[in-house]
Nucleic acid binder design. Structure first.
Lengths: 127, 127
DNA sequence: ATAAACCTTACAGCAACTGGAGGGTAAAGT
DNA sequence: ACTTTACCCTCCAGTTGCTGTAAGGTTTAT
């Protein structure tokens, strides 16, 4: 499989696949005579794995860690769960933060008449 | 006021104040003979304004826009409200996204026994 | 034969800073 | 007066996770 084909199957840009190769996250299994990267099905599974993990906002380094567990026969589900729980806690923290952000801003927007007079509680609050 | 003083009053790192000067977001009103940036109270108010707006995840460009309105006597509250509403919609979209992320991941974490056996629904799902 | 589609590397850029090197200056202590 | 400490300066590199572009080489289809 050349890079275009695996990228299509993994549903990500060619650039991204090449980037993952550059940072040694998912390496091609070889090169053609012309220097084209060649990939196998194992690489495809890794890319799909990463796409899913990235959708969960796992960082690249977390993906690397998870990928290690993914291919490690010795891993325990506790290892994986612990990483996922850490991520979940991060998400929950972000949610809380976003909620108070939302509430404050919504309050200000609600208080602003939005007419063509210059006085505005949003500006007052921010300033 | 020199940069250290205004940074302290505005509650942000000196580096950040210097950065805002570099990108012409908040310029010093002059320089000392030695080349030190000098700031006045108007600059301080702008920095505080920006810190608040940034806490709402307004981008620097949005801050620039808001700052323009802030100092523009001709602005109407409708101008400001429209920017704030746009931002509110972005926050709400992010919240929805984060919620489904949370639910999916929480489901997976809940399904994982987290013992020392290798089979793990999180890995199964991601792979 | 040639054009389109594909591949390569290498560098630049995004946002919004942060850190560090390598210096000059000012304020405070002795 | 001298030294230490605390500031200040510029410039460059790095962060994250790519994406865009330039300037080429290769393969495939017509």
């Amino acid at each position: 499989m050349k890079i275009g084909e695996i990228a299509k199957k993994a549903e990500m840009p060619v650039k991204t696949v090449r980037y993952y190769a550059d940072i040694d996250l998912v390496s091609p299994n070889g090169r053609t005579d012309a220097g084209y990267r060649t990939y196998n099905d194992a690489a495809l599974r890794k890319l799909v794995f990463i796409r899913h993990a990235r959708a969960f906002d796992f960082s690249i380094e977390e993906c690397r860690e998870l990928l290690g567990l993914f291919t490690d026969q010795q891993r325990t589900s506790a290892d994986v769960k612990s990483i996922a729980q850490k991520r979940l806690a991060q998400i929950e923290a972000k949610q809380t933060e976003l909620q108070s952000l939302h509430d404050e801003l919504a309050h200000l927007v609600g208080a602003c008449r939005g007419d063509n007079r210059p006085d505005c509680p949003i500006i007052d609050y921010l300033g």
